[in-house]
Design a protein around this nucleic acid. Structure first.
Lengths: 103, 103
DNA sequence: ACCTCACATCAACTTTTTTTGATATGAACA
DNA sequence: TGTTCATATCAAAAAAAGTTGATGTGAGGT
């Protein structure tokens, strides 16, 4: 059984490893093949595969298989979901939810 | 030596544990004393202290000692910094940085 | 069909994080 | 000053995450 909090934590787990941040940094300049990431970053092949799986499962990165290769890219929908979740978790509740409450 | 990526990862480490998310959830309804958190959440005293330290170090939570008690609250500045970092890490680069580039 | 290349998965190991119980610190109060 | 209460810190154990090298899988090319 997976609790809601565990599920929410997963999104941020994707972001809490320096190597995964380095991967995101690479993807900011556009879609990249795994083999390109592999020699841009100091990672073994299976290590890269491990991290890419975590990034993809978080929704922040999307993959596109093409023949023998796999291309990875930032997914704007995943980013927006993560941003919204982060905002939600760290913003005070208001009793009524209206925008004029300045809690 | 701490790399930039390690430093950035720290903010998200604060958010990647279900118990810490439960703590944030408690703080959304307002500042809380450690002893209140302690019986709202299933945590030992030293366990709570451990997680609060991580949350405070990330900047997302601020603490206010008052006599024997410590009060914790969400820190809007920490939230904004985290949101900005998340947005930065997951948003594509544009060559020029101008707002009319739709990369 | 066979071989090779790109990537995924697995199992063993290493490292990091979390939990726990015991002890330390420090404020308040008798 | 001595005691109690709230919290922090410590060290040891447990659990989770990350790394590595070997093996599996499936697409292309010969």
């Amino acid at each position: 059984m997976e609790t809601l909090y565990q599920k929410q934590a997963k999104v941020f787990k994707a972001l809490c490893d320096p190597k995964r941040i380095a991967i995101l940094e690479q993807l900011r300049s556009g879609e990249k093949c795994a083999c390109v990431l592999l020699d841009a970053l100091e990672l073994t092949q299976s290590g890269l595969s491990y991290h890419m799986k975590i990034l993809c499962e978080s929704g922040i990165v999307a993959s596109r298989p093409e023949g023998k290769w796999t291309h990875y890219r930032l997914d704007p929908a995943g980013r927006d979901a993560a941003l919204q979740l982060l905002a939600q978790l760290t913003t005070p509740d208001t009793e009524c939810g209206c925008s004029s409450c300045h809690a």
